[in-house]
């Protein structure tokens, strides 16, 4: 696929989706009681489905509040995500190097991953209080597991002949770790980070919905509650799009870091057209 097609195809898809959205807005009115033979084109009201222009208008009206909220969410999501990346990698190093530790702790890590955030959030508020720390902690909890699971897998997936090669050269365990296992695990680590990056913003939003935030704007999650209670559906859509953009930025940054780290040697970077 040539580089022009890589840009054009997503734009075409976006235009088609926008068209479908407009179509839904102006045709689903048939389902409403207000529809009549004299007035066949009844658009859905904004509280049921706002049109793209109404969402843009709401975005412009609320831009200062949304920007502040996005900043709050970004800070909490970034803090939780960075902690998950660092701590997750460190834990994976321990698990990847010790069968005993892996056997003892890995099932529990999986178990705690299954605990719903909805249940944990109130407990975190009781322990830590409301505010950015709690939101960051929830983000951490939701982003941590993909990093640990993928990195551990990468540390353990070293080709047997390469391990034998290091054995033949009498490599110490830490040499095998640093020169062989860790570089081998990098693609896996970045796969974990990519999953975590898409979860980080969701985690922060969930945290904010349950906890709120100490700042004036209260994060995008908090805005969702406010706009819902005020029945400002176009603003709710604008908030959703802002959250999507934030998530997109997270995923984009991780993709860029992955490209930086793996661009010289990893097949997934080199063979994009497969």
């Amino acid at each position: 696929m040539n580089s022009r097609a890589k840009w054009i195809l997503p734009i075409v898809t976006g235009v088609v989706l926008l068209g479908l959205w407009m179509l839904a807005k102006y045709t689903l009115g048939y389902l409403l009681p207000a529809h009549s033979a004299d007035n066949p084109l009844v658009p859905l009201p904004a509280y049921l489905l706002p049109g793209p222009l109404e969402v843009v208008q709401a975005f412009m009206e609320e831009r200062v509040i949304l920007a502040g909220a996005a900043w709050d969410t970004l800070r909490a999501a970034a803090a939780g995500f960075i902690a998950a990346a660092g701590f997750g990698f460190a834990i994976a190093l321990l698990l990847g190097n010790s069968l005993q530790l892996r056997t003892a702790f890995y099932p529990w890590i999986v178990f705690f991953q299954m605990v719903p955030v909805i249940v944990v959030a109130p407990i975190i508020v009781i322990w830590i209080g409301s505010g950015i720390t709690s939101v960051a902690l929830i983000t951490f909890m939701i982003s941590f597991f993909p990093v640990v699971a993928n990195t551990t897998q990468g540390l353990l997936s070293v080709e047997a002949n390469r391990l034998d090669l290091f054995r033949l050269y009498n490599a110490r365990w830490w040499q095998t770790l640093l020169l062989l296992r860790v570089p081998n695990a990098l693609p896996y680590f970045f796969t974990g980070l990519q999953i975590a990056s898409s979860l980080a913003v969701i985690g922060a939003l969930t945290g904010e919905i349950f906890i709120g935030s100490a700042s004036s704007t209260g994060g995008l999650g908090f805005r969702i509650i406010v706009y819902k209670s005020q029945f400002k559906i176009p603003a709710l859509f604008a908030t959703a799009f802002t959250a999507c953009l934030l998530g997109f930025a997270f995923v984009g940054i991780v993709a860029w870091l992955r490209w930086l780290a793996l661009r010289h040697w990893h097949e997934s970077i080199r063979r994009k057209d497969v």
């Binding site: 002949n161 390469r162 020169l179 990893h266």
Partner: peptide, 17 residues
Amino acid sequence: AREKMAFIFQEATLLPW
């Protein structure tokens, strides 16, 4: 005696990074 030996595998077993 490993210091006196070298092993060449069927695959080149190079480190791609």
